[in-house]
Structure formats: C-alpha cells, structure tokens
Computed example of a mutant assay.
Amino acid sequence: MTSQVRIAIIGGGIVGLTTAYYLKQSGFDNITLFDDGTGQATKAAAGIISPWLSKRRNKRWYTLAKLGAQLYSEIVATAHLSSGAYRQNGTIVTRHDSEKLAALYELALQRLADTPTMQAVEQLKPSEIETYIPGVKTPAAGILVTGGAQIDGTIFLQELTAFLGLKIIHEKVNLTATGQIDGYPVFDKIVLATGAWLAEAIAPLGLTTSVRPQKGQLISYQTPALSINTPVLMPEGEYDYLPIVNGVIVGASHEDDQGFDLTVDNTIINNLRASAGKINPQLANVAPTSVRVGTRAYTPDFAPFFGQLPDFKHIYAASGLGSSGLTTGPAIAKLLAALIIDSKIELSAYTKPITEYIN
C-alpha cells in the first residue's frame, strides 16, 4: 500500500519538490519534506529551459535535459501553475560569426525533427531581435526557438508546494549512521536532494562525494512593462537577459572559488551591470533593484548524477545539476520516483553509476 510507505525528502529545490510531485502522482501520500532553504539554487534562479542548441558532447546530459524540458507542460497543467512561475516565451541565441550561426541553425533544424517541444526555429536579423525584445541593442544575428521557456524558481516552488499540500519541516536535519533522520521516526525511503550540500548529508554514513559548490549571482531591474511573450535573450559573450513581468533579470555568474559564501560580491555585480548596459543601453546608469545569490552543485565531469546508495538501499540521492538544474531537475525527479517504485529500472541512458560520484 503506497499510503503506508513513509517517505522523507531532504531538500525542497527543483529535484526534491518535483520528486514529491511524481511520487504523489503515483499514489504515495505519506511524504515529509525537510528544507531549511539555505543558499538553495532553485529559489535564486530565473532559469532558461532551452537545452536544444547546446553543443555539450555529454549524451546522457542531453537526454536528461531534453526530457526535463518536455515534462514541464504536464507539471504546469496538472498543478495549474501561473505564467509567473513558468512560461513558454521563446529563446533567442546570438552569434557574431555568420558561419557559427549557420552551424547552430543547422543543429537546431536537426534536433527539431524529433523534438516537438522546440515548436519552431527561425533565423533573426539584429533589427528583428530588437523588435522582439524592447530596449535591446545587438550587433549580432540570432536564432529563435519558439518552444524555449522561462521559469522563476521562487514562484515555481511556491505554487507547486501549494498544489501538493506537503508537510514541510523548515529545519536542517542530519542522518544517523544507520541512514535514518536523527530525531524522527523511521522512514521507509529517504531522498537526498541536498544539492551542493550532499557531502555534509552523507558524511554520517561514512561516505564522501566529489560534488563541489559553485556560487551564482544575478541582478534584477525594473523596466517598462514587457509582454509575457517577450523571449529570453542568450547573447554571445554576455550574461543572459530574461524578461519578467515588470523588468528584466541579468545573470548569472559562475564562481568556483567561493564555497558556500552567500554574500553579495560587488565586483561580480559590477560585471553584471556592465553586461546589462551593453545589452540594453537604457540600463547603463541604472542601479539594480535586487540581487539573488545561490549555490549550485557541480561534479568534476560537469554531469548530474542520481540513484540508489549501494550500501543503503532505502536512500536515494541526486546532485551535480550545475547551471542547467532547472532543466534536468524534473527528469531526474521522475526517474528517481520510478526507481523508488521499481529498483530494477535502467538508468544508464541518463547517468553514470552513482558509485562514480559517491565513495
């Protein structure tokens, strides 16, 4: 009986919450989620869901990312999420070199052939990009993928949490040496969706991991109201430019040497401001209205991983999602939920064995 299976999920970001979603869809309703929210990458993120033009050679990553992008439409429809949480407003990617742009367009057409989620692709002149995104000035041409989407991590989590009606305990918890949560009754299944904090989470089990933290910062501006259909811009050589209801977000940074530091770094903020001014000259001398800071999780091979801990069969873990976590997160969650239901499912098309990352 699924209702009698007690499940704990540690971590309330994109993986933790969507794992709860898929478990609930499968009839599991005795789920407790633990989340202290510290430095969470999802809450700090304004993500771009558009993996199809990536030239990363990691086939497992692309398979995950492609699946993750596809899954959002079902989640959004089922949970009745708003356009503030998720919207398919298109993505524009620019290239300064015409040959590189032509190669990227060819790649887009190849992937469009078997990826309905992309919807359509179109080449754009600089003037056409500027028409799509008011205020932007670009010397480079680009490619529009109309199926590209945008997610606000904070709003997405709030709305999905409300839909699920989960029991959430807002505190930091620790595992015992036997793989239970210290101070709580025994759980039948435990999911570790702790991101960059995985090493700390599994230390009581006598395990270590190669996961490292990466700091990310982004800035927001208030601008004249933009349409919810205004595309995201991914300009070559600059930070990403994401429209929101009453402004834009610019970012995010990738800082490998800051550990778990969540303080705002003015040097990075100045770099973000300089990039914003190049993309939209109207922002050149305008102060940002807010700053977000979060901590991503990375592995040495820049690949996400997930699965069942070999010596603790009731514990499942996922980490290493990096800057594409909002894209791969739902796919990882769906597969984790499937693994909890049937431990024999095959994951090799999506991830290396978990023992490659946890020792």
Rank of each mutant, 00 (worst) to 15 (best):
Q4I: 01
R6A: 10
I14V: 05
I14K: 11
L17D: 00
T18F: 01
A20G: 11
Y22I: 01
K24M: 07
T32R: 13
Q40T: 08
A41M: 10
K43W: 09
K43R: 15
A45L: 12
G47D: 06
G47F: 04
I49F: 04
S50Y: 08
W52F: 11
W52T: 00
S54A: 05
R57I: 03
N58R: 09
K59R: 14
K59M: 06
K59Q: 14
K59Y: 01
T63P: 00
T63F: 05
T63I: 08
L64G: 04
L67D: 10
A69D: 03
A69E: 02
E74H: 12
T78I: 07
L81F: 02
G90R: 14
T91K: 13
V93T: 06
T94K: 06
H96T: 12
E99R: 14
A103N: 03
L104M: 11
E106R: 15
A108C: 02
Q110E: 12
M118I: 07
A120G: 08
A120D: 03
E122W: 12
Q123H: 10
K125A: 15
Y132R: 14
G135R: 11
K137N: 09
K137T: 14
T138N: 12
A140M: 12
G142Y: 13
I143V: 06
L144T: 09
V145Y: 09
Q150I: 08
D152T: 08
G153C: 05
L157I: 14
E159T: 01
T161I: 00
A162P: 00
I168P: 06
K172M: 05
V173A: 02
N174W: 04
T176F: 07
A177R: 12
G179V: 03
V186E: 13
V186L: 13
F187R: 12
A196F: 06
W197P: 00
I202E: 02
P204R: 14
P204E: 09
G206T: 07
V211H: 01
R212S: 12
Q214V: 15
Q214M: 13
K215D: 10
G216Q: 04
Y221R: 11
S227G: 01
N229L: 02
E238F: 11
Y239E: 10
N246P: 00
E255K: 07
E255M: 06
D261Q: 07
T263A: 11
I269M: 11
L272T: 03
S275Q: 06
Q282H: 03
A284Q: 14
N285Y: 07
S290H: 14
F305K: 02
Q308K: 08
P310I: 03
D311A: 12
F312Q: 06
F312G: 05
H314W: 06
A318V: 00
S319A: 15
G320S: 00
S324L: 03
G325I: 01
P330A: 11
A331K: 07
A338Y: 05
A338G: 13
D342I: 12
E346R: 15
L347F: 07
Y350N: 05
Y350L: 10
K352S: 09
E356F: 09
Y357P: 00
